[in-house]
């Protein structure tokens, strides 16, 4: 193909300090079939308009920073090849369901709060001294949660989920999958603490089984599956509270 071919990128622009409302700005970018959307945005920033604001880091689908809406779909822009859209224009917007900070950058604070709410760390009643060695785990025990530990917090699942956009209390796919990851960890004893948060009101039950979170996940974490398993765990916990004395129904970790 000729070297002078170009492709149009329509970037969402919004500077809250100066703009009363968002707008789209078109840029002609050299077309290279090896380029991804992130390369094109970086080229615009480097050579055409330094005021374009976007987040990125690793360029290889590991850091989870460059998630944006590409032609209306949540994508890691480092994995969205121009050749899959060429010769048509590509519209790039910030991830939906998040407040926009500037241009293609969204405010992650609410998301980070939700991650913290599920206590994403190993909780133990007793902590062994390091001289006693590590907490050992079999390959089968590792397999219970490994898939859910692959999340890179790219937030594509939050942009894909219709519930996230309508229900503030909903913890959302990534946070629920992360909570479930620790609940399934044989070294953990904090399941009851986590379920206390996950079981409440719309935190988990707000999920309406749409499943888009698992469709868009670039790391194949399957948050929808995690949520369904967490719901089954939560339902067991709910009924246990009726048949067992207060406190005794609280389930310890999978390995406890």
């Amino acid at each position: 193909m000729p070297d002078n071919e170009t492709i149009t990128l329509e970037l969402f622009r919004y500077h809250p300090e100066t703009d009363s409302e968002p707008r789209f700005q078109s840029y002609e970018v050299p077309y290279d079939e090896d380029w991804v959307v992130l390369d094109a945005i970086n080229w615009i920033k480097d050579y055409v308009d330094g005021s374009v604001t976007h987040r990125w880091s690793c360029r290889m689908g590991v850091c989870g920073s460059c998630g944006m809406m590409v032609n209306g779909e949540p994508k890691l822009t480092c994995a969205a090849f121009l050749k899959n859209y060429y010769p048509f224009p590509i519209k790039v917007e910030p991830l939906v369901n998040f407040p926009v900070e500037r241009d293609l950058v969204v405010d992650m604070e609410g998301f980070m709060d939700k991650l913290q709410d599920v206590k994403p760390y190993i909780i133990r009643d007793d902590v062994n001294d390091t001289s006693q060695g590590e907490y050992r785990q079999s390959p089968a025990e590792l397999a219970q949660y490994k898939q859910y530990s692959m999340c890179i917090n790219c937030m594509l699942c939050y942009a894909a989920c219709p519930v996230v956009g309508h229900e503030d209390e909903f913890l959302g796919p990534a946070a629920l999958a992360l909570g479930h990851r620790y609940n399934k960890d044989s070294r953990d004893q904090g399941q009851s603490e986590r379920l206390e948060v996950m079981l409440s009101s719309e935190a988990m039950w707000g999920c309406t089984f749409v499943g888009e979170c698992s469709v868009v996940c670039p790391k194949h974490v399957d948050p929808a599956g995690a949520i369904q398993q967490a719901k089954a765990m939560g339902a067991q916990e709910y009924f246990k509270r009726f048949v067992m004395p207060k406190g005794a129904g609280a389930t310890k970790g999978a390995g406890a």
């Binding site: 913290q116 948060v197 409440s200 719309e202 935190a203 039950w205 719901k231 939560g234 709910y238 009924f239």
Partner: peptide, 17 residues
């Protein structure tokens, strides 16, 4: 919760079951 999230139990577990 630590994050200020309400932790009241929900009857949704019953309907989900």
């Amino acid at each position: 919760s630590a994050g200020g999230r309400p932790t009241r139990p929900s009857g949704e577990a019953f309907w989900w079951a």
